[in-house]
Design a protein around this nucleic acid. Sequence first.
DNA 1: CTCTAATACAACCATTTGATTGTATGATAT
DNA 2: ATATCATACAATCAAATGGTTGTATTAGAG
Lengths: 117, 117
Amino acid sequence: MVVLEYSDQDVNRLFRALADATRRDIVRRTLVADVSVSQLADSYEMSFAAVQKHVAVLEEARLVTKEPHGRERMVRGNPDRIREAQRLLDRFEDLWRSRIDRLDILLAEDDPAPPDT
Amino acid sequence: MVVLEYSDQDVNRLFRALADATRRDIVRRTLVADVSVSQLADSYEMSFAAVQKHVAVLEEARLVTKEPHGRERMVRGNPDRIREAQRLLDRFEDLWRSRIDRLDILLAEDDPAPPDT
DNA sequence: CTCTAATACAACCATTTGATTGTATGATAT
DNA sequence: ATATCATACAATCAAATGGTTGTATTAGAG
């Protein structure tokens, strides 16, 4: 099994990009269907340039890709990157479970019968 | 089934807290075992106050809790909150899948036989 | 009781972030 | 050919972030 490794910077960018409501909304919309930057800009109460920057942050985080289509850029959500984020969180859960497991072993050891007699 | 709702602010804090390598490391360590703030501070190349602030950010995000134990505060990772983050990401995946499903329906409709004759 | 270790908290500072406006460029439609 | 729409990008700015040092408080050790 291939365990992909991520740099701290990379993971920082990923979670940072998700830490903004407008950006999360952009990701949602572009997972459902391809949308141009200007279509996105129409939806939010901020300047075109501001939306453009949010898209750029998402692109750096690889949560979306942009594809030129004539004079507009279609923004496409990247489901793989969402899954990568999920896998990163899975590792945290694994740590927690390993703690519980070790605790169980300890309890099993000194409660009913001493092990390995 | 209960669908919990989160405010944008709450989700922002959650992902923001995860967007820092030191903080992620603190979460990992405190999921594995309870650790005091000063024990944590010893591990990182920064001041005690800086580590204290990171713990505060994690606490605000509810990724850890602090429990007084004598003169020290034990920091404990909160696995439930990790799971909440995972569930938020699941919803993004759901959107993607719904897109695929709709696409499949479209393809099924006009390819082999027209539906509903 | 006194000293010290662990924490809390305020003030400060540099950098980053999230937004703005303005200007430039490229593709389309008329 | 030209006007316009979609985008890119620079400069600017206020607020938030991530770090520092210094001071105060509190609990435990000697």
